[in-house]
Amino acid sequence: MKYIKQFLIILAISFIGELIKFYLPFPISGSIYGMVLLFILLVTGFIKIEQIDDTAKFLLDIMPILFIPSAVGIITKLHELQEIWWQIIIITVVTTIIVMTVSGLVTQTIIRKKNRLKNQPGG
């Protein structure tokens, strides 16, 4: 029963997220609204982490395989990508590396700068 109860809470929040998406005009997905909602409920203490912890950890653990059916769906789009597939692959790989490097280095630089300021005597 433990897992079922926890799953109920998570499903309810997912559903509320989808309802928010239904009523608001923004192109934000219901799962993102649900994620923000769950975060707020946890921070404000309306939901205790123990009430969802086990099922949440299970769902996060199996998350990679949840993408596979959609990823296989690429085969239905192959004909549309036929002429530009190599450009698409270059763009996908190169931009992913650029974004990762830029955001990682910016974050790291700011953190290190702050730590250095904090560690300075009298700083």
Binding site: I10, S14, G17, G34, M35, F39, I49
Partner: peptide, 25 residues
Amino acid sequence: YYNKSDYLYYLLSPATVCLAVPLYE
């Protein structure tokens, strides 16, 4: 194939919601 495995897709939304848990921790 998709009709046989789309239940995985239904779990994706609740799983994404659960990403709030590691963040909260």
